[in-house]
Design a protein around this nucleic acid. Sequence first.
RNA 1: CGGAGUGUAGCGCAGUCUGGUAGCGCACUAAGCUGGGGGCUUAGGGGUCGUAGGUUCGAAUCCUAUCACUCCGACCA
Length: 441
Amino acid sequence: MRLSNYFMPVLKETPADATIASHQYMLRAGMVRQQSAGIYAWLPLGHRVLKKIEQIVREEQDKAGAVEMLMPTIQSADLWKETGRYDAYGPEMLRITDRGDREMLYGPTNEDMITDIFRSYVRSYKSLPLMLYHIQWKFRDERRPRFGVMRGREFLMKDTYSFDIDEAAARKSYYKMFVAYLNTFARLGIQAIPVKADPGPIGGDLSHEFVILAESGESGVFCHSDLLEMAAPGEVDFDSDLSDHVDKRMALYAATDEKHDEAAFAAIPKDKQMSARGIEVGHIFYFGDKYSGPMKADVMGSDGKPHTIMGGSYGIGVSRLVGAIIEASHDENGIVWPKSVAPFGVGIINLKSDNEDTNAVCETLYSQLSKAGVDPLYDDSSDRGGVKFSRMDLIGLPFAVTVGPRGIKEGVIEVKNRATGERQSLTPDAAAKFLISEFTS
RNA sequence: CGGAGUGUAGCGCAGUCUGGUAGCGCACUAAGCUGGGGGCUUAGGGGUCGUAGGUUCGAAUCCUAUCACUCCGACCA
């Protein structure tokens, strides 16, 4: 992409409304625009990141055997009355009526609808286990939206629902998602810790939050520091026994402040005690027959008798992750994107846009990188160098290449690593080769 | 939902207390000088002061209502 053809309205000054780094940088980098309290328009740069995160989440769900679909944002109140949640959910649910005065709602979650879909098609235990997911916008009318996209009212969420014949089978599904989440967050470039959680209003008795540590986190987290060292499982056979991956993590103490047990925490060796702030980026629940019971979602078992299915739901806050990743990865100059979610791979800075030599080098590099799929952003504007440098630092692409007349005279251009600050002078060809290798390993 | 604030140009703000016909910086437009970390000069354009009433000869400024947004708390992907 050429900057001259793009729409990336960066701000020099920090908007007064934003108080935390991720919100400030998202506004300054022109990623989002607030349209209403907790409701954002995703501008091109932010949209790219959102889609990258979404795609990684999708790929990891697919690997775990979940099947993608798409349910509507607007739901009829009927199903919610059937499960009793229409009254239970309270004012957080946005209720609307259509022209026929029928009660509708903008979905805050989809357990009721997916259970309805399930019960209308699935008749036999032979169709199980089944995991269905979608990535769809949700609306929860929060009392107090804040922190930009981290606590919006409208947000993009991946929600998976599992259906199993009994509790033992349901636990396997739970473990699959547990492992899928570890892999997902690792690919997103963040260290997420599974923490025992309160099942909350969704109900159930097996529940974990996945939190990443960041100073601006909304909850306190206490855990065994080994949890931060464990590598994600990576490529695994999801039909195999996953309990090793899960159990060794569950064995270590980890809790948010509301479930914190001082005595259990004190039992951790002193040098392994970790207490910090955390951002919840995922939450998984096993809730048994909470929905399948009242909605009569049952299948015929091998014993010839109907069995109420045992369910779970598994959420990842996709739009929240955009902010959360920035919270976990930024410096005083701006965002530092992990490679996997960066909106572009490499920034190309042409220091003198009216110079034939620098233009030629930039054009060649731009075309080489584009062909290799590195997705460069070429700053071909006539702004001064300083403006280009600081803008590039702000939007946080993994690498920035500086092409200027001074370097060209010596046959070199400069490649800077955004995360480490390390700079190297290379010939244009060597730079292209280096950058392409960085993104194809 | 309790408490505290803020709405003046695209962004950041001053002006409000003490009423007199709206200003600064950045950004934007034009020209020129510049050119390796947010440059300089000159000349421009842009605002029914959140909205609606009221008081007054006169309201950004005082009064009333209302809307929106932010922050702190209690709650949440």
